[in-house]
Simulated scan of single mutants.
Amino acid sequence: MKCQLSLPLLLPPLLLCLEPPSPDNATARAAPPPRHPLQPPYPYPYRFLLNEPHKCRGGPPFLVLLVASQPGDTAGRATIRQTWGNESSVPGVSILRLFLLGLHPVFGRELRGTLEEESRLHRDLLQQDFLDTYNNLTLKTLMGMEWVTRYCPEAAYVMKADSDVFLNLDYLVRRFLLPPKKNFITGYVYRNTGPIRHPAYKWYVPREVYPNNTYPPYCGGPGYVFSGDLATKIYMVAQKLPLINMEDSFVGICLHALGIGVTHSPMGVFNMYWLQYKKCRFSRLVMVHHYQPQDVLAIWPDFQQTKCPR
C-alpha cells in the first residue's frame, strides 16, 4: 500500500493510503471517496442567474458591500438599502452594495419574476443556481468573491455581512480602513476553535468534510472586512481546497493556505452578540449581531441625528 500526503495546505497534513494498482490492470486508480452531503460540489460551474457585471465600469469603489440575503426577504433588503446598506452612508466614500442570493429550495420558480423585477429596479442582486441553504453559505460567499475577481478587482476593500446585523460603515471606514491596505482582513477573530462533531447542531462538520481538530484563525461570519486584493486570492485558492460547510471557517482555511494572517480588531468593535441600543456606544462599534432589519429601522433615525463626542 502506498501512502501520500494530502491537503498540503492544511495543518497538520493528512496521510492518505491508496491501494496499489491491481496486477491485471496497471492503470487502475483508486476511486475518489464519495462526496459528503454537507460538502457542496466545488469548484463547479455555477451560473449567474442575476448579475451586475458593469457596476464598476465607472471606476473602482472604495468598498464593495456584499450582503448575504435570503431570496424571499424582499422587505429586509429594502430596509438595508434605507439604513446601513445605503451607498451614500459615508460622505465622500464610494460604496457599492450587492445582495448575495441562491435559489429558494422550494419556491425558486415562483420567486423568479419578483427577483427579476427587484433586480431591474435596484441593480444590486447577485444570484447563482445553487440552493440557498445554511450549509451552502460557503458557496454564497465564494460567489461574492468570484464577482469581485471578475468584475471589480480594483476595489480597495470588500465587506461581507449578514442581513441580521447593525453596521456602522462610517466608523469602519474612518477608524480602520484609511489609508488602504493590502493582504488585510479583520473582524471578530476566532482562534483555536474546532469543528462541532455532533450532528444535532447546525454547525455540524463531520470528519469526512474537515478532518483536523482545529481551524486556522478566522473572522466571524456575520461581518468581516478585507482588502480587495484578498478577494481574488481567496477565490483562486478556494479552487484547490476541499470545501467545508462553515463559510467563515473556510475563509480562514483559505487564508492559512495563502500564508496570510488575520488582523485583530479592538475588543467588542465587531460584536457577535446582541447589545441594547445606546447611540453613543453604537457610534464606536462597527457591527452588532442579531439585529434584524426591522430592528435597525427602529433605531436608525436616532442613530443618524445627534452626534456623540469623539
Rank of each mutant, 00 (worst) to 15 (best):
M1C: 12
Q4I: 15
L11D: 09
P13V: 13
P13Y: 04
P13N: 08
L14P: 00
P20R: 11
P21M: 12
N25D: 15
R29I: 14
A30F: 03
R35G: 01
P37N: 07
Y46C: 01
N51E: 12
N51A: 13
P61I: 09
L63H: 00
V64K: 01
G72I: 11
G72C: 07
D73K: 10
T74P: 00
A75N: 10
W84G: 00
E87Q: 12
V90F: 01
V90C: 02
P91H: 08
S94W: 05
L96R: 08
R97L: 15
R97S: 11
F99N: 01
L100G: 01
G108E: 09
E110T: 06
E110P: 00
E116N: 04
R123V: 07
D124R: 03
Q127K: 04
D129G: 02
F130Y: 15
D132Q: 12
L137V: 06
L137T: 08
L137I: 05
L139G: 02
K140G: 00
T141S: 05
M143I: 09
T149P: 01
T149L: 08
R150L: 15
A155I: 05
M159D: 02
K160W: 07
S163M: 15
D164K: 12
Y171M: 02
L177P: 00
L178E: 11
K182M: 12
K182F: 11
F184R: 03
F184V: 10
T186G: 02
Y188W: 14
Y188K: 10
Y190F: 15
G194P: 02
R197S: 09
H198T: 12
Y201N: 09
Y210K: 02
Y210P: 00
N212C: 09
N213G: 10
T214V: 15
Y218T: 02
G220Q: 09
G221L: 13
V225W: 05
F226V: 03
S227W: 09
A231D: 02
T232K: 14
I234A: 01
V237Y: 04
K240E: 15
I244K: 01
M246H: 05
G252Y: 04
I253S: 01
I253F: 04
L255S: 05
G259D: 04
H264Y: 13
F270L: 06
Y273W: 13
W274V: 06
Y277C: 04
K279S: 07
S283F: 03
V286W: 06
Y291S: 06
Q292A: 13
V296Q: 06
A298C: 02
A298M: 10
T306V: 06
P309C: 06
